[in-house]
Design a protein around this nucleic acid. Structure first.
Length: 875
RNA sequence: GCGGACGUGGUGGAACCGGUAGACACACAGGACUUAAAAUCCUGAGCUGGAGACAGCGUGCGGGUUCGACUCCCGCCGUCCGCACCA
């Protein structure tokens, strides 16, 4: 009698309830077993989970469940990255409250995640928008302020004049606001910053120690931090155009060796000297204004012409008081890199060369390739940017680039301009301090008060938290906190006079920079419980999208250091021991090709697919018209190629979705969601259910004594099972889930073959194989595995079973098959004892008929025998 | 422009340290069961030639190292990603 079909959607809630009731996944801090902290990046509560979440959380869950079975005390928590602009937009559009909207989304998504059967300790759930979380963040901020790690300064920001808020660089697309499409303005605003640059060197250095991070992410961070070694060089200024109080100009360069090739200085339009000079030069002022209006987008920069404006100011060459070069204001100089001023050496830098040609400035070659002829070497349209030998450079002539750098550095450091040395070796970083002020409502309030008499006053600890008001209005753009009738008006904590709260809130990346710490003690009265934090951290395995390679992961690394500095952590520096970045979930796109709706995107549900031989065609179900099958793209609302996890779980079960997400594609690569793939997963589930059923009835009863000896077929079966067990864990540990899945497929095939076999004496091995298969399936398809476990006669929970250990004796074979090559070409294979000596293998190989034929009577020159691997006959 | 990754059957992919390329799955074809279908099970298959045994070719392209290369080295081509007026 065949087993009934397994009804996953009906069974899964049952097991979820059992796990919850028996508190199977609750984590205790006082558990003496070794800890393992596995964390997936927490979701933004946008409304519903998507397939990317399913993939991400399934991977983490496989690790968490396996590690748990292996005897680790596993921490696997979940929370919500719950502040952010979408809640405000929703409030504006739907006349609701951001908090209500967010909490409603959390409800829905929590239910969805629970329906996935994740082994999460839900008692540790946190949401960053809850005051119990952000009150501690305010404390962290104040402590950072005390340490000088948070500070205020005026800076230029992207300002959206329609939404009336600052936008991050990422939110400016082609010079326009991502939401409003309004042209973005550059505004000078006073903002709060975190001093991440104080850790620039350390954040860069420590990347080398992150051995379990993807090389790619480490590289991206290294490039982002952008360390360069160079010099600050001060130039004396003169000329009639020189504004008062500007006697000198400091430039930053990585090529002091090319100093004798200098033909101009250039400064940023926002440079203080430029501003001062513009005050008395209307044309220059107009030029600077024009530069400021220039867009900041990639396209703008690429097409923008390199332009300069001669200020009339002259700079004196550090090595020759009689030599002066003009000072230009140039549109391509960035105020916030280096000193906002450069010296141009046209022969050694392409951009400087273009500039010099345009404005008729001298081009003196100072570096030529090694072995070149100084008399003949010239620079035409292409600058020589590589290292080489110095020429036309007085005392530097003949030195190589590196030596020239050192010589110039030595001389300038010893030479005075005014009272100070004329030059200084320095290290410069691309990394900027982290601007965290946002003119938005739905974020963590920055806990300071502005007092007309006392200035910026931190909110005293006693007065924390600074809570968001619950009666803000969202009927018009701008910051609801700022226009709230009463919220910002408070007494100054210092002088008790009339004062105003800071109305900016923190960037939401602040929230996610320490949530992994909070999970270690989610109910602590202080921000952290240092004991719990040092017991649990660092996170042993962190899993998330590559899109956070820089921002979130760099900020978290900084924050961990800052929290150690402010004593919220016990000296921890790196939060994430191992990082894994998973690929996206993609789907085919479909669109109409004709009629009034040409170009309209169609959802997968609206389309019927037909396979005609190997050609695939798609038809609109409603009308029958053929539609175009477009490229496979990331699931997105705009292309309408999304699949709702709820639908899949409701139809096939969570285990099916989980299994499919783990199958086929390597986890770091994109995976293509296909109906056929899901159905394949569903079929496999039925097959497992059937095989377990047969193994339970055909195999020997549970607990029956192990036979003294096994038949050859039984040994083969046992070997297959134990080898799979061995490989399975190695592949899971290496996060090669797709390979682990393939191994289970293979074992299922083997078990099926054994069940079909008429041979007697397999009962015990069949039973064992079935149980091992179910145990390995457990972390991947936990619900099905529980049912199979019960079908095998157990009344325990599979989730509570220890991980089985492979019998090492079964992992090695007595006889092995090795390939036999003739002249590097495979001709045959040889089955021989594992311990066979070289000469035995050699003579056996030479006797093979196909080898003899391939040699064709030629003389055997050499035979390479690699025991247990290969034989290669060279003839 | 700079930096990086990748390129294997019809498709997704596997191959640990240089040692039998194509595991496993999807799709496909043939067969069994069935009145039929679904479900399930069995079989086949890199390409070319051959009835077949077998032979030749084959991991983007061209070279190289090696007894032996998907794997290492050099040079191209293509795709994707990150950064980008960084002095």
């Amino acid at each position: 009698m065949a087993a009934e079909r397994y009804n996953a959607p009906a069974r899964e809630p049952h097991w979820q309830k059992v796990w919850e009731e028996r508190k199977v996944f609750l984590t205790r801090d006082d558990d003496p077993r070794p800890k393992y902290y596995v964390l997936e990046m927490f979701p933004y509560p946008s409304g519903r989970i998507h397939m990317g979440h399913v993939r991400n959380y399934t991977m983490g869950d496989v690790l968490a469940r396996t590690k748990r079975a292996q005897g680790f005390n596993v921490l696997h928590p979940m929370g919500w990255d719950a502040f952010g602009l979408p809640a405000e937009n929703a409030a504006m559009e739907r006349k609701t409250d951001p908090g209500k909207w967010t909490n409603g989304n959390i409800e829905v998504m929590r239910r969805q995640l629970k329906s996935m059967g994740l082994s999460i300790d839900w008692s540790r759930e946190i949401a960053t928008c809850h005051v119990d979380y952000y009150r501690h963040q305010q404390k962290l901020f104040l402590d950072m302020l005390k340490k000088g790690l948070a500070y205020r300064k005026a800076s230029r920001v992207n300002w959206d004049p329609v939404d009336m808020t600052v936008l991050a660089n990422e939110q400016v697309i082609d010079g326009r606001g991502w939401r409003s499409s309004a042209p973005i303005e550059q505004r000078e605003l006073t903002q709060w910053f975190f001093k991440i640059t104080a850790y620039a060197d350390e954040l860069l250095e420590a990347l080398q120690g992150l051995a379990k991070w993807p090389e790619k992410v480490r590289l991206m961070q290294a490039n982002w931090i952008g360390r360069s070694e160079g010099m600050l060089i001060r130039w004396a200024l003169k000329g009639k155009a020189l504004p008062q109080g500007h006697k000198e100009l400091e430039v930053y360069t990585t090529r002091p060796d090319t100093l004798y090739g200098a033909s101009f200085l250039a400064i940023a339009p926002d440079h203080p000297l430029a501003k001062a000079a513009a005050a008395s030069n209307r044309e220059l002022g107009a030029f600077c204004d024009e530069c400021r209006r220039m867009g900041t987008s990639v396209a703008d920069l690429e097409s923008a012409e390199k332009k300069g404006f001669d200020t009339g100011i002259l700079a004196v060459h550090p090595f020759d008081p009689k030599w002066t070069v003009p000072v230009y204001v140039a549109n391509f100089i960035l105020m916030d890199y280096g000193t906002g001023a450069i010296f141009g050496c046209p022969s050694g830098d392409q951009r400087d060369l273009d500039f010099a040609r345009k404005y008729g400035l001298p081009v003196v070659p100072v570096v030529m390739p090694k072995g070149g002829d100084a008399a003949k070497f010239t620079v035409g349209d292409t600058a020589y940017v590589d290292d080489g030998v110095m020429i036309n450079s007085h005392f530097l002539d003949g030195l190589d680039t590196l030596a020239a750098f050192e010589e110039v550095a030595k001389r300038l450091e010893g030479q005075k301009l005014g009272r100070k040395p004329a030059g200084k070796r320095t290290v410069n970083f691309r990394l900027r301090d982290w601007g965290i002020s946002r003119q938005r409502f739905w974020g963590c309030p920055i806990p300071v008060v502005h007092c007309p008499d006392c200035g910026v006053v931190p909110v005293p600890d006693k007065q924390l938290p600074v809570e968001l008001p619950d009666d803000a209005t969202f009927d018009r753009p701008g910051n609801p906190l700022d226009r709230h009738p009463s919220w910002k008006h408070v007494a100054c904590p210092k002088c008790a006079g009339k004062a105003q709260r800071e109305t900016d809130t923190m960037d939401t990346f602040v929230d996610s920079s320490w949530y992994f710490v909070r999970f270690t003690a989610p109910g602590a009265k202080t921000a952290t419980d240092r004991k719990a934090a040092s017991d649990w951290l660092p996170v042993d395995q962190y899993i998330g999208g590559i899109e956070h390679a820089i921002l979130h992961l760099l900020y978290s690394r900084f924050f961990t250091r800052a929290m150690s500095e402010t004593k919220h952590l016990d000296g921890l520096k790196e939060p994430f021991e191992a990082l894994f970045t998973q690929g996206m979930v993609n789907h085919e796109t479909y669109r109409r090709t004709s009629g009034n709706h040409k170009g309209q995107w169609l959802t997968p549900a609206e389309v019927r697919l037909d396979t005609d031989g190997t050609a695939r065609r798609a038809f609109l179900i409603d009308t029958g018209e053929e539609v175009e099958i477009g490229p496979v793209e990331k699931m997105s609302k705009s292309k309408r190629n999304t699949i709702d996890p709820d639908d899949i779980i409701g139809r096939y079960g969570a285990d099916c979705a989980r299994w499919f997400m783990l199958s086929d594609s390597p986890p770091e690569r994109d995976v293509q969601w296909t109906e056929a793939g899901v159905e394949g997963a569903a079929r496999f589930m039925q097959r497992v259910w059937r095989l377990t059923d047969e193994a339970a009835s055909r195999g020997s009863p549970r607990g029956s004594p192990r036979p003294g000896s096994f038949s050859p077929a039984a040994i083969e079966l046992r070997k297959a099972a134990h080898k799979t067990l061995d490989l399975f864990w190695r592949n899971v540990e290496g996060l090669r889930f797709n390979v682990a899945v393939a191994q289970l497929h293979e074992l299922a095939n083997t078990l099926q073959g054994a069940l079909a076999s008429k041979e007697a004496g397999l009962e015990w091995a069949i039973r064992e194989c079935g149980e091992l298969l179910v145990q390995m399936l457990g972390p991947m398809m936990p619900h099905l595995a529980e049912d199979c476990w019960a079908r095998l006669g157990y009344n325990t929970l599979l989730a509570d079973q220890p991980w089985p250990k492979p019998e090492t004796a079964l992992l090695v074979d007595d006889t092995i098959t090795i390939a036999v090559q003739v002249n590097g070409k495979r001709r045959d294979e040889l089955t021989i004892s594992r311990s066979a000596a070289k000469h035995e293998i050699e003579s056996a190989a030479l006797k093979l008929e196909s080898v003899v034929r391939a040699i064709e009577g030629r003389e055997v020159k050499r035979i390479i025998v690699v025991p247990q691997r290969i034989v290669n006959v060279v003839a």
